[in-house]
Each structure stands twice: as C-alpha cells, then as structure tokens.
Write a protein that binds this DNA or RNA. Structure first.
Lengths: 131, 131
DNA sequence: TTTTGGCTTTACGTTTACGTAAACTTCCGC
DNA sequence: GCGGAAGTTTACGTAAACGTAAAGCCAAAA
C-alpha cells in the first residue's frame, strides 16, 4: 500500500520536479511539511497539495493564485459568511477561466488538425513528385 | 467590413494587450509588420498571428515555442521532406500536450465542483444555524 | 505656430519561478 | 571512524515577458 509519509526526494522523483522547487513552494507558503529534526516530512495531504500545485502550473496558474485558493479553502473551515462568499466567487472565477481554456484548446486543436493535414498533403506531393 | 490593415494601437485595444507587448513579440521574431515611414502597419495575417500568440500564451506556450511553430510552418512551404517531418512531429507534440491539458482541466473541474458544493453546504449550514 | 496625440527607439527595472554553488549536518554501510 | 549519500540553509544568478521612463519624430488641431 501507499506510504503515509514521504521524503522530499520521494515526492521529487514521483512528480518529476526538483527538491529545490518543492522547497520553493514551501517558501511561498504553499506547503507546510512537518519536521523530524531538520528533515522535512510530507504527509498524504501534503502530497495532494503538491499534485494540485503542479496541475495548476500546467494550466498556467501562478503560484500566488494557487496559494490564494489554498488559503481561502483552509480558512473556509472556520470561515464567516463573508469568507465563504469570497471563496465561492474565486471558485466561480476559476471555473470560468477553465471554460475559456477549453475553448482555446478546441480552437487550437482545429488549427493543428488543419496544419497536420496540409503538412500531410505536402509530404504526399513530395513523394509522388520528387524534386 | 473589417479593415485590411491595422495600427499597433488598433491591435492593442482589440486584443487588450499593450503596444509594448506587441513590439516585444516583433523583437522576438514572432511578428513582421511592414512600415510606412517608421510606423508599423499590420496586415490581416499579422493580426491572425497575434491572435495565435495570445491563444498560445493563455495555454502556457512560451513565446519561443510559438515562434518555433511559426518558423516550421513558414519553412514548410518551401520545405524538404526532413522539414515536413519535423513539422509533423512538432504538431503531434502540441496535440499531445493539449490532450494532457484537457485531462488536467477535467480533473480540476471535478475538484472545483466538489469544493463548490462543500462551500455551498457550509453556507447553508451557517444560514440555518447562525453563530 | 505651438501643442497635442500617437508613434518611435533605447535602455534600465521588475516579477516569477526557479538554478546553482557553497558550506554544513546526519545518518548509513563498510 | 570514515566516506558518501541525502538532507539542510543562505545567497547570488538567470530566463522569460514584459513595465516604465526618457527623449525624440511627425501630423493634425487649436
């Protein structure tokens, strides 16, 4: 079964990032591993956070954005109505941004498909009509 | 009907970017407007290029990546088989990257939906059970 | 004619997200 | 008990993508 704690290099190799990056995320208040002496110990939830950070990055989220979401989420457990409404707003914003991204991807896929077939045509032409 | 040429501020306002950015893209060999005296004149194809640059940016493409695709595409008209094959490879790579992005978005949408309903629950709870 | 608005170049500054090197501790196997 | 691997902190360096003056050209309006 999957372990319940991880070393920094465990996570680094699993997600293919450098330990430097992981420490940097901690520096930016995105991760809060516990310590055993000086050594960082990462829990299951820590690991999930890292996964979310990286997913966010692949989608163009800045670390600051991701941190803001984490903070709102964390505060929401103890939060006032105001806090909850703010969180809700941010969630809607991100959802809307993802919708826009889906559109962008769809457009780009069409263009790449078109480019692909033009490219294919050119290759066939070259085969049948060598210079 | 839509004009066939554009000033730099036309494009800047249409796409909501600064003229500084547009000039920077030119500096990075992504755009090649003609000149009337010193003033830049953008054609329809130039405008399309800018749109592609910005779409790429929203999807996390670096300017260098986008430029490489542009260059391969431009060279493909006069290109050898080698060139065409390289272009084809790059197109496949981008398509694969977009597929990954679709997965990331799907995952994140699920998580945001879940967060949204938890948030909604917490808000209802607060309404029915005020502190 | 002057001044205003938009364009230009040049160049240094800034933010984000790390890379990289130095110098140090801790533990593990031999 | 010693070397090496893996961890740590501190701190300067870097690439990308612009921001932000500074200083000047040029055409239309006042």
């Amino acid at each position: 079964m999957s372990p319940s704690t991880y070393s920094i290099s465990d996570l680094a190799s699993e997600f293919d990032v450098t330990t430097r990056s992981i420490r940097f995320y901690e520096d930016q208040k995105l991760l809060f591993p516990t310590r055993k002496g000086q050594t960082r110990i990462y829990s299951g939830p820590d690991r999930v956070r890292l996964k979310l950070i990286l997913r966010g990055k692949r989608l163009g989220f800045s670390l600051a954005e991701t941190r803001e979401l984490f903070e709102l989420w964390d505060e929401s457990t103890t939060g006032s109505m105001k806090q909850l409404e703010l969180l809700m707003t941010k969630i809607q914003e991100k959802k809307a941004a993802l919708e826009q991204q889906l559109k962008d991807i769809a457009m780009l896929q069409l263009e790449l498909d078109s480019a692909e077939s033009r490219c294919q045509d050119a290759m066939n032409e070259l085969k049948n009509n060598p210079v």
